[in-house]
Design a protein around this nucleic acid. Structure first.
Length: 469
RNA sequence: GGCGCCGUACCCAAGUGGUAAGGGAGAGGUCUGCAAAACCUUCAUGCAGCGGUUCGAAUCCGCUCGGCGCCUCCA
């Protein structure tokens, strides 16, 4: 399997630390608001990665953090905590907010058929681990205290910014935000705050440096190391995390352990709205629920995401989403008809043509998760005139183990009609023989709403069950 | 100011040296009382533009034009 590693900026052959085990850490949501579909694109990509690894035979230990503390509203270190702000505005406690939006997040990823991580860890449950990490860093001399906060001294970490190529960038300190006068170096970042500028800051914990709360990079290092060890295979996230969040995580993790922390860094690109990135701050975002309210199935969005490569920006608009919906619907219709015709052939007994297409499908995914290529192979399969229904069905269901489009659940179009449905069909046939076309057409529409598709032929009327499509 | 990336048909989008995947939409046809679905046919001598390298370039190099992201909120 080949994957593009942001560390080194090249496609590399994937070799896990342990032969059959993969440690996978994915940056999770900050649970102060709903995820938007741009956020969700990244989780779809990570799910594709996980499923591909599992399909390739690896046992994946998938860990994701739930950030319920520590991210700030403002661009600088003096911004208000998002959790606290949301709590204050709604009159709820931060814990209530976190609980509510954590549930909403899992509901979204469930609806997208994204496999839940084996471990989903909340930051507030791991404050002790974070303090432990900061103490390790302090003992090794990587920290300093200024203005009541504990800072990481980036000048002490030799390869700081290596992945983000920061040494090649002449960063303009203060280009966007005010410089924190407490910092010795512009890139230094806070490990522990004791000086909240907001009175009544609810989320505070005791620490060796005083009562306060952790900086927002610490949790990922502390929790990933707890669940996956000082060194593990893959760390994923959005591309925006490369220069700051992941750069700082690498620095503090490797400074603490003295070991290489992560072997493969894989980052997903943004979803664009009208050529601009989708962002809550820009106000140009949709939630999954918005799409559902517009009449789309969450899997339509999943299919849409699979239509673009994870390392390319993907342009979202409703015309494209319609295209994805139509494509997925057409696929499901074909699968329903295949199920009516034959039993799926087992993978080991596929004929050579089907096996060859499946091989190309796999090759696409194993080559840096080329899902668009894999989908193209899927359509080659569906269009093939020589492959039998059983072989097609067996192959496409095999493909869907990675694609996750729930084709297994598609009902065969031959499913028996209920008495009620049958009665309407008979009623329409009567209308047709009476040449009462208006009534026949009306009943055809009614049947379609009931999920029954009608086809009038010279031999009579045929029905197809389209109930769950 | 610096860094990273992109520009492929009406829309989305693969392909990154060997002669343009796939989906959707559109058009024509078969079938039908009319439809829908299905099936068949069709849909870029062309990959922003201009040069260059090469037997050969959408793919490599240069320039120009246009767009996106980042430089401590961000998936």
């Amino acid at each position: 399997m080949r994957l593009y590693n942001t560390m080194g900026r090249e496609i590399q052959e994937f070799k896990p630390i342990n032969e059959k085990e993969v440690g996978l850490y994915c940056c999770g949501p900050t649970v102060y608001n709903y995820a938007h579909i741009g956020n969700l694109r990244t989780y779809v990509f990570e799910d594709l990665l996980r499923r591909t690894l599992e399909y390739a035979g690896y046992n994946v230990n998938h860990v994701m953090n739930i950030t319920d503390v520590g991210h700030l509203t403002g661009d600088a270190d003096d911004g208000e905590d998002k959790m606290e702000k949301s709590a204050r505005e709604t009159g709820k406690t931060p814990a209530d907010i976190a609980s509510f939006f954590t549930d909403a997040f899992f509901k979204d990823i469930d609806r997208l058929n994204i496999t839940r991580p084996k471990t989903a860890c909340a930051a507030t449950k791991h404050i002790g681990n974070m303090i432990g990490l900061i103490k390790r860093l302090e003992a090794k001399g990587f920290t300093y205290i200024e203005g009541g906060n504990v800072y990481f001294d980036t000048s002490k970490f030799e390869n700081y910014g290596e992945m983000a190529l920061l040494d090649r960038q002449k960063l303009k300190a203060g280009a966007r935000i005010a410089v924190d006068g407490n910092k010795k170096n512009p890139a230094d970042f806070v490990l522990w705050f004791t000086n909240s500028k907001f009175e009544n800051h609810i989320m505070q914990w005791e620490s060796p440096w005083g009562r306060g709360y952790p900086g927002w990079h610490v949790e990922c290092s502390a929790m990933s190391m707890k669940y996956l060890g000082d060194s593990f295979d893959i760390h994923c996230g959005g591309i925006d995390h490369i220069p700051i969040h992941h750069t700082n995580e690498i620095a503090q993790s490797e400074a603490a352990s003295g070991k290489k922390w992560v072997n493969y860094w894989i980052h997903g690109e943004f979803l664009l709205m009208d050529k601009q990135k989708m962002a809550k701050s820009a106000g140009n975002f949709f939630t999954l629920q918005t799409l559902i309210d517009e009449g789309y199935d969450p899997l339509d969005y999943r299919y849409f995401c699979l239509g673009g490569h994870y390392r390319s920006q993907l342009i979202f608009n409703f015309e494209s989403l319609d295209a994805a919906r139509n494509a997925r619907s057409n696929l499901a219709l074909k699968v329903a008809d295949l199920k009516a015709e034959a039993e799926p052939a087992p993978k080991a007994k596929l004929d050579v043509r089907a096996a060859a297409i499946l091989k190309k499908f796999n090759a696409g995914l194993l080559n840096d998760l080329n899902a668009p290529k894999a989908l193209a192979e899927l359509w080659q399969l569906m269009k093939d005139k020589e492959i039998s229904a059983g072989d097609k069905l067996g192959t496409v269901l095999e493909m869907d183990r990675v694609l996750g489009l729930k084709l297994e659940e598609v009902e065969a179009s031959s499913a028996e009609l209920t008495d009620e449905e049958y009665a309407v069909v008979k009623e329409r046939e009567q209308a047709r023989s009476d040449k009462d076309w208006a009534k026949a057409d009306e009943l055809r529409g009614k049947l379609l709403e009931m999920g029954i598709e009608i086809k009038d032929t010279a031999e009579g009327t045929e029905c197809k069950k389209r109930g769950n499509l």
